[in-house]
Design a protein around this nucleic acid. Structure first.
Length: 572
RNA sequence: CGGGGCGUAGCGCAGCCUGGUUUAGCGCACCUGCCUUGGGAGCAGGGGGUCGGAGGUUCAAAUCCUCUCGCCCCGACCA
């Protein structure tokens, strides 16, 4: 590729809209441009990288025995009504009508379509197992798109669906995908973790998320250094005993007192003001659910986890109550809620169980109660694991120290079971001639998100540093003196010889000053730069620079091609 | 959807509060010429704006008012 013939509109200045480094660099390196909120155009550099990632995905999916298909992006409402998700999916599903006023949606995922297809084509156990995948554009009308392609509304996703006869089969399919995913992300040069995860709207019984470790990640993950436990924070259990949750407390119950706490709303403020530790407080949080308003209690230094609470209450809708509702239920503005005297159901985290003589809001403005006790002052309807794992908590599996980090979810694999095959009637006849539901799994990879995640993990102050396997080009040739025939001819010779050797190479043939070329080269992050300038060429030398460590070494013109091939292979 | 903020040249911004001396400005980018060629050069000249849109107030609106559209941030939501 010739630089002068392609479109790589690099930016010197930092775009105002970008929040995370990958977004900034994708804009600055001329990979993407925004068209609307959460909707991006991919420019040539963006396409090259995307194709590389897709190529790796295809190779590994095919290696794992999956077959590629391409399903429609536009889907009829009937299918979604059959699965029940036309109502269930909510506003994230982009709906529209065709000219005949028939309802359609733009596919946010393809369980319905694939299950419908399979229900029509599969008759016998002899046709199973099967794993079909596609790489396709999806649309999810996210409430708040952000971070560029990391959380866009329109995005490219690889989704795969497995179809098996029995549990043993689906386990095998699942494990094969798990292994394939590990290979894919390893080949993309990513540091990642597979963590136990929640299943969400897709449904199903069992799932893992593949998380790329990055501070900018939107997911909390908990993992253990001693054993191989790793889970999404929404799923990670609290190891009750080791963390002192739910123990007995034999302290004497003191008399309840009211303390004035003017304007003190947060745990931090109250504990500082009353000169106690945050863990001597109990937070009372009011939630609205489809089954009415409830209160949830956690220790002052703990954080409620709404996903866990939702699961514990078996509720579909759960929202932190607004100021108005809080005032109605407690009689006080938010910040002063407490469990005493509430006539709604009160649930508590295990961590609250053993507490005595603790502090809560007094359901009265500017006041808190001291020496509150469960049983004497109020009753708990049920205890559950409803808080986040904390830094000093122990691993739920082995009891050693747990770690908490941030991650970007780049892949998610589910064991779906028969949810969709039942809804859409996908059955097969087993060897005894009995009709059975096909057992399904589904497996997604966010392609754009993988690209963004790779940048989050591979960059420096000058720009992107592509891992060789997903680099838009492997080599960039930089002729420094465009008006010098020797420089240009040598550059062109090296360029064609590398193309002959099947190296992905781009030559910066623009009539620009060296400084401009160097800056752009570092910004777009091509792993190997061949620098050709008069100075060295007079001694028949060129320079090779590796983008990652900035190392530069001289090399004779004749030896360049072989040297480059060696370097490319070594990282590929 | 709730709270906050921003829309002025391709990008980044100033001007708005206190309406008129502004023909709407600056930096970068762009075009022409000269010059320069190992880390985003220099000089000279030049092009580019419905001041997001609609309505209103006024002798006069980028500036004040109303509505509207778009975007960004925080919260809730999410394969």
């Amino acid at each position: 590729m010739r630089y002068s013939k392609t479109l790589i509109p690099t930016l010197k200045e930092i775009p105002a809209e970008a929040e995370v480094i990958s977004h900034t660099l994708m804009l600055r390196a001329g990979m993407i441009r925004k068209l609307a909120a959460g909707i991006y155009s991919l420019l040539p550099m963006g396409v090259y990288v995307t194709k590389k990632v897709e190529g790796i995905i295809r190779e590994e999916m095919n290696r794992a025995g999956a077959q590629e298909v391409l399903l429609p992006a536009v889907q009829p409402a009937e299918l979604w009504k059959e699965s029940g998700r036309w109502e269930e999916y909510g506003k994230e599903l982009l709906r529209f009508k065709d000219r005949h006023e028939r309802d359609f949606c733009f596919g946010p995922t393809h369980e319905e379509v694939i299950t419908d297809l399979i229900s029509k084509e599969i008759r016998s156990y002899r046709q199973l197992p099967l794993n079909l995948y596609q790489i396709q554009t999806k649309f999810r009308d996210e409430i708040r798109p952000r971070f560029g392609v990391m959380r866009g509304r329109e995005f490219i996703m690889k989704d795969a669906y497995s179809f098996d006869c029995d549990e043993k089969g689906v386990d095998e399919s699942y494990n094969r995908m798990y292994d394939a995913y590990c290979r894919i992300f390893e080949r993309c040069g990513l540091k990642f973790k597979a963590v136990e995860a929640e299943t969400g709207v897709i449904g199903g019984s069992f799932s893992h998320e593949f998380m790329v470790l990055a501070d900018s990640g939107e997911e909390g993950i908990v993992f253990c250094n001693s054993c191989d436990y790793a889970a999404n924070i929404d799923r990670a259990e609290i190891r009750t005993k080791e963390n002192g949750d739910g123990g007995e407390n034999k302290e004497e119950r003191k008399e309840i007192k009211k303390a004035s706490t003017p304007g003190m709303k947060t745990v931090e403020e109250v504990s500082k003001y009353l000169k106690v530790r945050p863990q001597d407080l109990v937070k009372t949080l009011i939630f609205e659910s489809e089954n009415g308003i409830i209160a949830a209690l956690v220790r002052g230094d703990h954080q409620i986890n709404e996903t866990k609470l939702k699961r514990f209450l078996d509720s579909n809708i759960l929202l932190l109550a607004g100021d108005e509702a809080v005032r109605e239920v407690t009689g006080a503005p938010s910040g002063f809620a407490g469990p005493i005297g509430l006539n709604i159901a009160i649930f508590a985290d295990h961590g609250v169980k053993g507490m005595q003589n603790f502090i809560t809001g007094a359901n009265e403005i500017d006041a808190h109660n001291i020496n509150v006790n469960i049983g004497r002052d109020f009753e708990i309807k049920g205890y559950g694991d409803i808080r986040n794992v904390k830094e000093d908590d122990k691993c739920p599996r082995c009891g050693k120290d747990a770690n908490i980090k941030r991650g970007i979810e780049v892949g998610h694999i589910f064991k779906l079971g028969t949810k969709y095959s039942q809804m859409l009637g996908a059955t097969y006849l087993d060897s005894k001639g009995e009709e059975r539901f096909i057992i399904m799994g589904c497996y997604g990879i966010g392609v754009g998100r993988t690209v963004a995640a790779a940048i989050e993990q591979n960059h420096d102050e000058n720009g992107i540093i592509w891992p060789m396997p997903i680099a838009p080009f492997q080599v960039l040739i930089l002729p420094l003196n465009t008006n010098d025939t020797m420089v240009m001819e040598t550059s062109e010779d090296i360029y064609t010889s590398l193309i002959d050797k099947k190296i992905d190479v781009v030559i910066d043939d623009r009539d620009e000053r060296p400084g401009v070329k160097f800056k752009d080269a570092d910004l777009i992050g091509i792993p190997l730069q061949i620098i050709i300038g008069l100075r060295n060429l007079k001694e028949d030398n060129i320079e090779i620079k590796t983008r990652r460590n900035g190392e530069i070494f001289k090399c004779s013109v004749d030896a360049v091609a072989d040297k480059i091939i060696k370097l490319v292979r070594q990282d590929a």
